[in-house]
Amino acid sequence: MHNHYIINNTLEFHPATSTLRDLHDPNNVVVLNYPASRCLLLLINRQGNIVTQHEVMDIVWEQSGMQVSLNTYYQNISILRKGLKKLGVVENLIVTIPRIGLTLASGTQVKKLVADNEVEIRHDHANAIHEQEDDSMSPGLTIETQHAPGDTKLFPPAQKASLRVLAHRLSIKQISSLILIIFILLTLFMAFAIGSDNATNHRYFETYSASISHGECRVFLSNNIKSKADKDKALSYVNRFERSCQNYPWLYISHFPMLPRTSIIRCDKPMSQHNTCISDYFFESNK
Rank of each mutant, 00 (worst) to 15 (best):
H147M: 06
E144L: 10
F241L: 05
L166D: 04
R261F: 14
L251K: 11
A229W: 05
D135P: 00
H4T: 03
H54P: 03
S254Y: 11
P35V: 02
I79C: 08
H14Y: 12
D151W: 01
N224H: 08
R169E: 12
L11N: 02
E144W: 02
A210H: 15
L186E: 06
A229C: 01
D135N: 11
T262G: 00
E242K: 14
K231M: 07
L41H: 10
I181S: 09
F189N: 14
H130I: 07
I97M: 07
E55P: 04
I278L: 14
R169S: 08
L23M: 10
V119H: 00
A36Q: 03
T17H: 01
E55H: 05
T10W: 04
M137F: 12
L141R: 10
Y208P: 06
S263Y: 14
H130R: 15
H168T: 12
T72Y: 02
S213N: 10
F183P: 04
M1E: 12
Q174V: 14
C267L: 05
E133G: 04
H2R: 08
S244D: 14
F282M: 06
V95G: 00
V89Q: 00
A191L: 12
L186W: 11
W250P: 05
P270I: 00
I179N: 11
D116S: 13
S196K: 11
I278D: 12
V114C: 04
K226L: 05
A158M: 10
Q47T: 10
N9K: 08
C267S: 09
M137Y: 13
I181Q: 09
H214L: 13
N3V: 06
A16D: 15
K228V: 12
S254R: 10
N201H: 07
Y208Q: 05
Q63V: 02
N49F: 08
I6F: 07
D151A: 10
G65V: 02
F220W: 13
A128N: 13
S176I: 08
L259R: 01
V110H: 06
A234E: 02
P149A: 11
I175P: 00
I278Q: 14
